[in-house]
Every structure is written in structure tokens, then in C-alpha cells.
């Protein structure tokens, strides 16, 4: 009998053309210098075939790296769709051509996420590390908006762009986008190197959400804050126009991530490998002591906190990225409050 994994994030390549300061990819972390990049059509196909053989997967999110740099990416998407899986893509919006987006839409890709970090090239390109990336994103948006495929804009909220978040939302609205994901900077990967430049104080983060909530209401945007944020830092009730979410304690309902080599992780932010789908059973990996620890271990900082069942200590994958244990609360909690 197949193991039920409703939703999988599939890291199809580690290659990317941008140098985003906030990038959480585990291979961008300072100690990952020896990392061997992956980008292989045959390996990706082999892993997906095996995954669909051992697990009942309903949805695949292609991520990277930059998926549109993956070798023979359209064929991988087609293969996945022909296996009757729904598909979404997390892209940086700078590599695909208009005809590539059209192909994705024709193949029934349901949703694509693209970062729009500011209403101007200066701020956006500072964050992505590559000049001209903002203009490419704007051009991509023009190609995607008329298609059936849903477009979600992503703002990574950092010290560099938080003050102008209302202007960014207005800009996004003007492009014809109605759905925005507000992801606060979550330390990890390249973000570890740039943390002093990007980290927000608690006050600044709350101010950003305040501005975003008001702008979202005025513009009729659908806003969500998906990176789990500790409830002792941000109280969602103060921002009624933003939908906040937190990690599920159930392992199957976590954003499980597999790379093309078959390595399974708790999420695309977590560096901890639970096992490999070619050598380990999903049952064994997802019910291992390591996996259970994530659900059962309450960090000391959160002991007796009545919000814990909703908050789950924020993002503990960020703690892992800093080589801290799962007993450590989200690093954001201990960052400056003002």
C-alpha cells in the first residue's frame, strides 16, 4: 500500500541565476561550500517515478534553485501532470520567457509564485544581488497575468524593504495581481551571512504587518503570512486582513521536501535529512525518532506558554539552519524587540 503524502516540494535543481541575500536554500549556508550542485533531467525523472511508486502524491511544487533553469523542466512538468498530479512552481521570475509561461499554463500548472520585493528596481535588485532582476520580474508578470495559471506575488519582508511595504503592495495591485504572500525574513542559507542587513526588530516587523494589513484592506488584496512566526512576536489578531499560518504538528501535513537525489527533509527550510526514498521506507523516515522529536519536543523557552499549541515555537528549521537543536525556539524570538 502506498504511503499518503498529499503535497511534496520537489527541489528540481540547486542552480540559480540570482544571489538573493535572504535565500534560505540550505546549500547557500556558509558551511555548505563543498556542496555539489544538482541539475539532471534523468535523475529528476527517476526520483519522481520512484516517489509516485511508493507514495500517493496529489500535488507537486517545483522549487529550487530556479526551476526554469532545470534541465528539460517542461518535460518534467508534463510527466508530473500526466501522472495526474497538480503542479505549482516557485520561481524567481527572471528566467522563463513568455512562451514558457504559456506552456506551463497549457499543461495545467495551477499556480506560480514570483517575488516582487519592492516597487522599484533599486531595492529589489539590492535584495536579489543582480541588477535588472526587477525589470525581468515585471516583464514576467505581464506575461502571466492574462493566463489561466494563478499568480502569487511574494514579498520577503526585510530591513531593506519593510518601510515601503504599502507602496510595494500598491505596485503589485497595479500589475493586476490580487494575491500576495508576505514572508518575513527567516534566517537560513545565504541569509545567515546577511542577517545583520536583513533582520527586523520585533517592532519593525509589526510595523510592516500593520502597514501591509491596512494597504491590503484598501486595495482588496488577499494577504497571507506563511512563514510560521512566533505568536509572542506577532499577534495575528492585530492584523485582521492577513491570514497567518503555522507548522502542522502532524508529520504528513508538513511541507515535506525531496531533492532530485531522493533525500527527504521536513521542509525546504530544514537542513535535516530524514532519509532517502531509494533506500529508506517513508513509514520509517516519517515515524523515526528524529521526526517524532519535532512534534513532541517543546523548547524550554516555550514551556508553559499557552500559545504553544498554535505557534509550535515558530520556525525551528531556522534554529536548525543556525546549527541549534530542536530544543531551541525560533531565533526571531530572541532577536531585538526594538
Amino acid at each position: 500500500m502506498k504511503y499518503s503524502l498529499p503535497r511534496i516540494a520537489f527541489e528540481i535543481t540547486s542552480v540559480c541565476n540570482l544571489k538573493c541575500k535572504y535565500c534560505y536554500n540550505i546549500w547557500k549556508a556558509p558551511e555548505a561550500e563543498e556542496f555539489k550542485h544538482f541539475n539532471s533531467y534523468s535523475q529528476a525523472l527517476k526520483t519522481l517515478k520512484h516517489l509516485f511508486k511508493v507514495a500517493d502524491v496529489q500535488h507537486v511544487t517545483f522549487t529550487g534553485g530556479e526551476p526554469f533553469l532545470a534541465e528539460r523542466f517542461p518535460e518534467i512538468v508534463l510527466f508530473t501532470r500526466l501522472k495526474n498530479k497538480s503542479v505549482s512552481i516557485i520561481s524567481n521570475g527572471t528566467m522563463a520567457k513568455p512562451e514558457d509561461y504559456k506552456t506551463m499554463s497549457d499543461l495545467g500548472v495551477s499556480l506560480i509564485e514570483i517575488p516582487i520585493l519592492a516597487d522599484n528596481a533599486t531595492q529589489h535588485d539590492t535584495l536579489t544581488g543582480i541588477k535588472g532582476s526587477w525589470q525581468k520580474v515585471v516583464d514576467s508578470v505581464k506575461s502571466i497575468v492574462p493566463l489561466k495559471m494563478q499568480l502569487v506575488a511574494v514579498i520577503v519582508i526585510t530591513k531593506i524593504n519593510y518601510a515601503d511595504i504599502d507602496k510595494t503592495l500598491q505596485f503589485i495591485h497595479n500589475q493586476g495581481i490580487r494575491r500576495v504572500m508576505l514572508n518575513r525574513f527567516n534566517i537560513g542559507g545565504a541569509g545567515i551571512v546577511h542577517q545583520d542587513e536583513l533582520n527586523l526588530t520585533h517592532r519593525e516587523l509589526n510595523l510592516a504587518y500593520q502597514k501591509a494589513s491596512e494597504a491590503g484592506k484598501n486595495l482588496g488584496l488577499s494577504l497571507s503570512s506563511n512563514v510560521c512566526t512566533p505568536l509572542c512576536v506577532v499577534n495575528p489578531q492585530h492584523f485582521p486582513n492577513i491570514r497567518f499560518s503555522s507548522c502542522s504538528p502532524k508529520v504528513e501535513k508538513r511541507p515535506l521536501t525531496i531533492d532530485i537525489l531522493g533525500n527527504l527533509r521536513f521542509c525546504n527550510h530544514s537542513p535535516s535529512i530524514l532519509g532517502n526514498i531509494f533506500t529508506d521506507s517513508l513509514e520509517k523516515m516519517l515515524h523515526s525518532e528524529k521526526a517524532q522529536l519535532w512534534s513532541n519536543l517543546v523548547p524550554e523557552y516555550c514551556t508553559n506558554c499557552e500559545l504553544y499549541s498554535k505557534c509550535m515555537a515558530g520556525c525551528r528549521a531556522a534554529s536548525e539552519q543556525l546549527r541549534l537543536s530542536l530544543n531551541h525556539v525560533d531565533p526571531l524570538v530572541l532577536y531585538k524587540s526594538t
Binding site: P6, L82, S86, E113, Q150, S245, C247, H269, C315
Partner: peptide, 30 residues
């Protein structure tokens, strides 16, 4: 790609996602 897209239309492969899971960097379709 063209023939694949036609086959997908004919087989009515599901576009939507069957169930709702909250994820950090990934949104379900509306």
C-alpha cells in the same frame, strides 16, 4: 508539449489540489 497539453485536456487531469495544507513558501490554489 502541445500534444501533451491536449492529452491532459482530454483526460481531464486534475488541476486543483485535493486538500488544504499550510506551507511556508507555497500557496494552495484558490
Amino acid at each position: 508539449m502541445k500534444i501533451g497539453a491536449i492529452m491532459l485536456t482530454m483526460s481531464a487531469a486534475s488541476v486543483g489540489y485535493q486538500g488544504c495544507i499550510t506551507t511556508c513558501y507555497d500557496m494552495p490554489a484558490q
